[in-house]
């Protein structure tokens, strides 16, 4: 019986991993290509959630699901064009400070505009309910999130591995100077990568708004986990991040089962272990410009 229940926790953990995935993939992309540790990534997730709450009464949840990520992607384009672009070749500490500042500005702006208490938002009625599979119970809504996450991962994988766009981005990650020497400017690619990355974060925000509290600090809450996922997965590795997100979800589930107070701490312990054994993360590649 206990084994069956543990299995349920593990499956549930895989589901939770899907949340982290959408945020961690974007974080990893921006770092790999631009060398920027985007501490403001959680802010885009929070803005996505707030946009969902603000837009849903007018255009419905479905409308917000499409509109919020697009609006946030446009915001990302502007921030890339006017701020991030100045820091790709600069000392990483500068972009760290910049994005840290952006995160604080975003959080406080949300607090000033929408107030500090959580905003009410519930799962749309047609997506609510549970799915029973034998002994196991799943939230129908979370299965939908999983579905969307799988689609996003597949789409992103296709974009990076099977298109001209993806080949340039991957070359840019490994050797930006060589890409430049071949007469290709990385700038438009970088803009597109930032837009996709923050758009994904906003999509995660929209999807999680109905199940988690919509409050100004929600971005900071999820960002730490996203970082842990990227570190465990290994920089520059697409599948490393995917695998790490799922492992983190499962480890949390198992910790909650055996020793609840360590539910969150278990994830950091996992990171510590991985770093001791594989300092570049599970599938981390050697990236010349960061060595």
């Amino acid at each position: 019986m206990e084994i069956v229940f543990l299995l349920e926790q593990i499956l549930n953990g895989l589901l939770i991993g899907a949340y982290y995935l959408l945020i961690a993939l974007g974080l990893s992309l921006i770092f790999s290509l631009g060398g920027i540790v985007n501490l403001a990534h959680g802010a885009f997730y929070a803005i996505g959630a707030y946009l969902a709450v603000a837009l849903a009464p007018h255009i419905g949840f479905g409308g917000a699901f499409v509109a919020a990520p697009v609006l946030v992607a446009i915001l990302g384009l502007l921030i890339e064009r006017f701020l991030l672009r100045r820091f790709y070749r600069a000392d990483p500490i500068l972009s760290l400070l910049l994005t840290f500042g952006l995160a604080m500005v975003a959080e406080q702006t949300l607090r000033m505009v929408f107030g500090a208490p959580p905003l009410p938002f519930a799962i749309p009625r047609m997506l609510a309910g549970q799915v029973m599979m034998g002994e196991f119970i799943f939230s129908f809504y979370r299965l939908m999130i999983l579905g969307v996450a799988v689609l996003c991962v597949a789409g992103l994988w296709f974009l990076l591995q099977r298109t001209h766009f993806g080949r340039v981005v991957r070359a840019g990650v490994q050797n930006p100077d060589m890409v430049g020497a071949l007469g290709i400017s990385l700038r438009p690619y970088m803009s597109a990568v930032v837009a996709i990355a923050v758009g994904l974060a906003a999509l995660a925000g929209v999807m999680l708004a109905p199940v988690t509290g919509v409050h100004p600090a929600m971005g900071a809450e999820i960002l730490t986990f996203a970082f842990v996922v990227v570190v465990i997965g290994g920089l520059g590795s697409f599948w490393g991040v995917v695998l790490a997100a799922l492992i983190v979800g499962v480890v949390r589930g198992i910790a909650a089962f055996y020793f609840p107070p360590a539910t969150e701490a278990s994830v950091y312990l996992l990171m510590l272990l991985v770093l001791l054994l594989r300092p570049r993360g599970l599938f981390g590649e050697r990236i010349a410009k960061f060595e």
């Binding site: 549930n12 953990g13 939770i16 988690t212 809450e221 949390r252 909650a256 539910t263």
Partner: peptide, 15 residues
């Protein structure tokens, strides 16, 4: 169960 203050996902406990 003791719940960490920064926990946002209760699903393991709901199970």
């Amino acid at each position: 169960d003791l719940i960490p203050t920064d926990l946002t996902d209760f699903s393991p406990f709901l199970l």
